[in-house]
Amino acid sequence: MKRLNIHFLLLLTGIFSCAFQTSGEREYQVKAAFLFNFTQFVEWPAGSSEATGSPFVIGILGENPFGNYLREIIAGERVNGHLLTIQQYKNADEIKLCHILFINPTDNKHIREVITALKGRSILTVSDAANFIDAGGIIRLSTINNKIRIQVNPAKAKEAGLTISAKLLGVADIVSPNNN
């Protein structure tokens, strides 16, 4: 009986403890998996990775919300022979070679500035910011009913010279900016 009671206490401490997981961890784990998936469902124009040895870059602009998850997911992975790497940026003008850019904006104005600065470059812009599509972003990860949905603006992808596969478009919500 004593043995049981000890186990019972152990269980209770397990159940009633809050220390294990901080909020939002799982959310960004899943979002990191989405970013990795995008590398497989989007085609970049020839020449966007120059030499054979050059990496395929996933950039994070602003604070990194993924912790180590993104790094773990892409570790050792390649896209068309290019090794996936992560670049961390503070400002848009630091962005050199970049294929996917996750924007974690400081404020709304910031998004528009970044999008404008990247105009004409073949970068798949991704964010979870509410007004991201309106600001001219390509993919927004939105949260509906506790699950993540993909919103895609195909017109902006085309402008950037990117081809999004039918498979990705099939599961995504097709949206266009609401400028009024």
């Binding site: 799982r26 989405f34 506790n146 699950k147 993540i148 993909i150 599961v171």
Partner: peptide, 9 residues
């Protein structure tokens, strides 16, 4: 992708 979209965050 479909399975990822069904994960509760």
């Amino acid at each position: 992708l479909e399975q990822l979209m069904n994960i509760e965050i």
